[in-house]
Design a protein around this nucleic acid. Structure first.
Length: 112
DNA sequence: TCCTTGACGGAGA
DNA sequence: ATCTCCGCCAAGG
């Protein structure tokens, strides 16, 4: 019997690899999980995470460098604070992907 | 079964 | 930088 590896599990796995202090986009996670073009699936998967998960879901933001949760909602604030706690700066609701986007394979903690 | 709704993203205007 | 449009497709009505 083969263990069935679901799309959801691959998505969880990739997200678990995002280093602290970095962020990744939904589309990026989809690609790394070998699900190109399926950014929405990543978003839906995150919306269904079990409460209390240890997955660093908050490191996933959209391609515009913004948090994809209703502004003002408690979940939005929660994600924002978790990112700030890791030293990520947010200017006018935007995070510089140029500066913080995860580059798999490159050494971490490379900060100016 | 059909229709709508998204934690999305890229291309154009 | 902002705003449509459109492709994507699982889940819920």
């Amino acid at each position: 019997m083969q263990k069935e590896i679901t799309d959801r599990e691959r998505i969880w796995h990739v997200i678990s690899l995002i280093p602290s202090g970095s962020v990744a986009t939904y589309g990026q996670i989809a690609q790394l999980a070998e699900l190109p073009g399926r950014a929405r699936l990543v978003g839906r998967t995150l919306s269904q995470l079990p409460a209390g998960t240890r997955l660093p879901w908050f490191r996933v933001i959209n391609a515009s460098g913004r948090i994809s949760l209703p502004q003002g909602s408690s979940s939005y604030k929660n994600q924002k604070h978790k990112l700030l706690d890791e030293g990520i700066t947010i200017v006018k609701g935007r995070i510089s992907l140029n500066q913080y986007q995860w580059r798999p394979g490159l050494p971490t903690t490379v900060k100016i």
